[in-house]
C-alpha cells in the first residue's frame, strides 16, 4: 500500500506521482526521512515480538528452576581424607565433574572450606595465599576471602561458588555446589 502521508522530496525519474510508482521504489526510498520512516504496523510487530520474547524468557526461567529442583541433591563424593590436608594446606579436587576444579582449604584445625577454583572474572585458576587469608587470581590481580569466598579486590564482582563439605569418619565429602551472586 502506498503511504500517501509520507513527504516526498525527490522527484521521480518518470515524473509520475509517488503513489503511481512501482512497489520497489516505495520499499527502497531515496529520501532519508522516508528511509527512517517506521509504519504503525512495523512498530506494532516490533512491540509484539519483543514483549513475546520477554514473556518467553520468564517462562524459560521458571522451567529451568523447576528442572534444577527436580534434579535433587547431588551425590556425596569423597574428595580426600583429613590427613591429606594439613592445617594451612590446600588440595585440588574436581567436583561435580572433571571440568570443575575446586580447592579444599584448611585454614585452621577445625575449619575446612572448599571453593571452585575458577575466578568469577574470566575463569583463571585462583591460588590460595594462606598467610594473608585470601585467594589470589594471577591473571588480573583479583582477590577472594578464604573465609567466605567473597571478592576483596580486583575485577571479580561475584564470590566464588562454595562447595558444601561433610566430614564423616576422617574423610571429607563434597555435597553440592552453592552458586552465589553476592
Amino acid at each position: 500500500m502506498p503511504d500517501e502521508d509520507r513527504d516526498h522530496d525527490s522527484a521521480t525519474p518518470d515524473g509520475r506521482p509517488a503513489a503511481a510508482q512501482p512497489r520497489w521504489r516505495q520499499d527502497f526510498p531515496i529520501d532519508t526521512p522516508q528511509d527512517n520512516y517506521i509504519a504503525r504496523r512495523e512498530f506494532a510487530k516490533f512491540l509484539v515480538l519483543i514483549s513475546g520474547a520477554f514473556a518467553f524468557g520468564q517462562v524459560w526461567i521458571l522451567w529451568e528452576n523447576w528442572r534444577r529442583r527436580r534434579r535433587g541433591e547431588p551425590a556425596l563424593v569423597q574428595v580426600a581424607s583429613l590427613e591429606q590436608v594439613p592445617v594451612g594446606g590446600s588440595l585440588v579436587f574436581h567436583y561435580p565433574n572433571e571440568n570443575e576444579p575446586c580447592l579444599l582449604l584448611r585454614p585452621s584445625e577445625n575449619t575446612l572450606v572448599a571453593y571452585s577454583q575458577k575466578c568469577t572474572h574470566l575463569s583463571c585458576p585462583v591460588v590460595p595465599e594462606m598467610q594473608s587469608g585470601r585467594l589470589a587470581c594471577p591473571c588480573h590481580h583479583g582477590f577472594f576471602s578464604i573465609d567466605d569466598g567473597r571478592p576483596l579486590a580486583g575485577p571479580p564482582r561475584r564470590p566464588l561458588p562454595r562447595v558444601n563439605l561433610t566430614v564423616r569418619g576422617g574423610a571429607v565429602y563434597a555435597a553440592g555446589v552453592e552458586l552465589r551472586t553476592v
Binding site: 522530496d9 525527490s10 525519474p13 531515496i30 529520501d31
Partner: peptide, 20 residues
C-alpha cells in the same frame, strides 16, 4: 532531483536528505 546513483543502489546505501 532524482539521483540515478541512489536509484540503482541495490544495498539502499545512497540517501538524499531533505535539503536536496
Amino acid at each position: 532531483d532524482s539521483p540515478t546513483c541512489a536509484e540503482v543502489c541495490p544495498a539502499d546505501a545512497i540517501k538524499k536528505t531533505g535539503d536536496g
